[in-house]
Amino acid sequence: MTMAHRFDDAHVDGVYRAIAERRDVRHFVPGAIDEAVLLRLLTAAHQAPSVGMMQPWRFIRIASTPLREQICALVEAERVATADALGERGAEFMRLKVEGLRECGEVLVVALMDGRERYVFGRRTLPEMDLASVSCAIQNMWLAARAEGLGMGWVSLFDPVQLAALLGIPEGGKPVAILCLGHVAEFYPKPMLELEGWAQRGTLGDFVTLDRW
């Protein structure tokens, strides 16, 4: 079998390195992100695959400092509610740093577009494929950010109804991620939740089967 379409070794290694070294970052150092770099990251996100070519992602760049503070307040409220829901692990959870909204250079809110019900191709039995498509866009951005030497964190601690109202997202649209982007002093050697002892990555063999569950 020929490998005519394979990248050269250096580029293949770069792809796997970005995947292996990508981290959900919560610690940032001050500094704005170059506009050309940000455009490259957004372009990478927009090049993601989407079911039925629906392209359900919408990106809202948060430029207002007061608005960023309001988003921080929503995240903090959900952080406390999550701790309450975790019961005996609540106190442990509250000690974790779960976001870097005030320190990062850029905040982006990623939302599902409105009017998604008109897209049936690939979603008739699996309507959640719109969210899967948005997740692919976020992962594209995450890997591109790592390649650019920038940290990115995905914040999901918020009430989507409240955040939608705050940002004027139309009915039917839904925010699914707050992304923190910025410069870092270093990248974590392992995922932060592993370093903090919250959870450990499973062994690949436990997640792969043949022919049946």
Rank of each mutant, 00 (worst) to 15 (best):
A144V: 02
P175I: 07
G168I: 13
R124C: 15
V98Q: 09
L179I: 15
F207L: 15
R89T: 11
I169K: 00
A164P: 00
A91K: 08
G173A: 11
V155K: 10
E186A: 10
S135P: 00
G105Y: 09
L126I: 11
E128D: 05
S135F: 08
G197S: 02
L131W: 06
M152T: 10
R95H: 01
Y188P: 09
M129C: 10
M129S: 00
A199M: 05
T203E: 14
E194Y: 04
R124P: 12
Q162K: 13
I169W: 02
P170Y: 02
P160Q: 01
E103F: 12
S133H: 15
E117V: 08
E106M: 12
A137I: 01
G105S: 01
T125P: 04
A132C: 14
I138G: 01
R124K: 14
D206S: 14
A177S: 10
Q200I: 14
G153N: 05
D206Q: 12
S133D: 03
V161P: 01
E148W: 03
T203G: 12
T203C: 13
S133L: 09
P127Q: 08
Q162H: 08
Y188H: 08
L112K: 02
A85M: 08
G90E: 01
A165R: 04
E186V: 03
I169E: 11
L167T: 07
A177D: 08
T125L: 12
R124Y: 15
V107E: 11
Q139R: 14
P160V: 01
G173Y: 01
G182P: 05
T203N: 06
K190T: 06
F93V: 05
R146C: 04
L112E: 07
W142H: 13
L131A: 13
A164C: 15
E106A: 10
G90P: 07
L195R: 03
L166Q: 12
R201A: 14
N140R: 02
G90C: 10
F187D: 15
E148Y: 06
W142N: 07
E99R: 02
R124L: 11
V161T: 14
W142D: 00
R118I: 12
E148T: 05
L193I: 06
G149I: 02
S133M: 04
A185W: 08
Q162Y: 04
R116V: 14
V184I: 15
G90I: 12
A132N: 15
V110R: 03
L181R: 09
L131D: 07
T209D: 04
V109Q: 03
W198R: 04
L157M: 10
A164L: 03
F158I: 02
R118D: 11
E117D: 15
E194L: 03
R118H: 07
Y119I: 13
C104Y: 09
G149A: 06
G182Y: 14
P175A: 06
P175V: 02
L181V: 07
A111F: 11
K97S: 15
C136P: 00
